[in-house]
Amino acid sequence: MTDTVHDMPGRRSAYPRLTGGLRHAVLIAISFVMVYPILWMVSGSLRPASELFGGDAGLIPSQVTVQAYRDGWFGLQVNFGRFFVNSLIISVLATVGNVIAASLVAFAFARLRFYGQKFWFALMLGTLMLPYHVTLIPQYVLFRELGWVNTWWPLILPKYFAVDAFFIFLMVQFFRAIPRELDEAARMDGCSAWRIYRKIILPLSMPVLATAAIFSFIWTWEDFFGPLIYISEMSQYTVQLGLRSFIDSSGTSSWNALFAMSVLSLVPIFLIFLFFQRLLIEGIATTGMKR
């Protein structure tokens, strides 16, 4: 109940009830509970199949083995390596599309002037709220007519048309903060809009482009619904679909192999998180969107 806690010199804590030590204890306890399930999954994936997980809530396996990874990797007719390659290709192509298309469109909204600009911008923001289920079935019919069911096109191509307004919005916010004098000076020198976009805006916008790329990659990687409805042939599966059919085919008998593949599927996201968490956190804090 003291109000003398100083977290930083000259700053007074607004909530003096939790003093320094106690505060850390609470936070560490919460962190532990948060992370424990993930650690438990990693530990489970390193256990031998005979060691049933019931009864052992601990994290230390009696015996460490990578057998589960071997079993899981080759557990389906098509091995998981293929799923990883598929997911990687789809995610990279989708990310490239998202970043290019969203930056072009955001440039138009943030830096150019044209008739109807406000109208289109309002419409674009409107689509942020629209649940994708509304377009789902006609889109499916459309892609089916084009013969693209069971291909990756429905998962990749829409990103080249900036269908996810979140990314446009994210970039508009950033582009608007770049000093206008830069454009005007360039325009005086006879620069075209394209050159201003390429030579001024893009180079100054690396942080937001990186943020968009990271989110785009992670969301495509984690996407389950899209692949679920469009892809039926196992050789075309993404990692998420692979995991899903692994559940169906193995039941609970090889839970540790299932854990092993689950852990692997999270590795790319975890690595991105490790290296780029500042960008992710700033991206969320500035747009306040989604996950």
Partner: peptide, 12 residues
């Protein structure tokens, strides 16, 4: 110029 940059989104 504006509409050309907007084109991907408009089509989408």
């Amino acid at each position: 110029a504006g509409y050309l940059f907007l084109a991907p989104w408009l089509i989408g």
